[in-house]
Design a protein around this nucleic acid. Sequence first.
DNA 1: TATTGTTATACTCTATAACTATA
DNA 2: TATAGTTATAGAGTATAACAATA
Lengths: 169, 169
Amino acid sequence: MPEGTPRGDFETGLTTDDQLDLRTWLRLLTCANMIEGEVRAKLRTAFDITIARFDLLAQLDRADPTDRGLTMGELSRRLMVTNGNVTALIDRLVGEKLVVRRADPDDRRAQIIELTPNGRRAFAKMSQAHASWITGLFDGVDRKNLEALYRNLAELKTSLKADSDMEGH
Amino acid sequence: MPEGTPRGDFETGLTTDDQLDLRTWLRLLTCANMIEGEVRAKLRTAFDITIARFDLLAQLDRADPTDRGLTMGELSRRLMVTNGNVTALIDRLVGEKLVVRRADPDDRRAQIIELTPNGRRAFAKMSQAHASWITGLFDGVDRKNLEALYRNLAELKTSLKADSDMEGH
DNA sequence: TATTGTTATACTCTATAACTATA
DNA sequence: TATAGTTATAGAGTATAACAATA
């Protein structure tokens, strides 16, 4: 057998390359879960907010400020969550006076969601705290490794995106 | 200002290094969510099982076969899920005849959970399908990048673990 | 007293489908 | 007909606390 050829695993039929895929994924998942668990707990105790609502606020905050907010459909696409779920999240955020629904002057079916001034201030605080928690968690990680990780994840992400883009075709 | 010194971001007070932490985390999360979403949907349609139950079966399958299964508490720790939740997962898996509860001869408070022969066979199929889905998703990723990713995640993981281990002290 | 596991409860997220108002 | 959003519902994950049996 030529050197470098992936050798099969007799028990599972997996090649060593398949195992690299799988192990990388499991490791990625473990890291993501550990960090997400921390962040979830801290967001809840510090601000009584969930990750889903935090992410929604982040999308609104990030949206082009010269733009007029985002529609429900836009939020649904960006958060990769179904329409009905966005409605529930927005209901909650409206109740907390962090966002408002406005009628779209151009399309009477559509609603435009905007951060209230209060919501923008609140999110700024959350966002800063969030960043500092992450900094704390990544404290011990070698900067060179982290930069490499950042670059390598970019390729994984675009590769995954290419996959999902092909699904409909 | 000396070269290489992280420069502050006047608007947020974040240094460029903080931003690397944050951006790496967001990228990591996006990748994990994209893959996890795929896997969740496929596990459900192919085997009518959730990721939580799949992970639980994986822990039992992975446990030293010369060992006698795992206790509820062991599962709770390994899955990083609370005790009550493990009970519910096991209830469901027992109902599907994939695992059994056995009394611990050494500790009458404890239960030992084991895969049934049927459960072991079923998990083998799921596991193979899972591996092939991951291989498919990682198909377009350069092998060198993937190896680098695998190594870099190792350091992140141990660094995170060190953090969480310190919490109790 | 501490630990193992169960039960009960509340909240949230996710997914689907039926429905309305409008385009 | 198709699209934007809402409503209703079911299933699942997560967290907490009270509890019984046992160590």
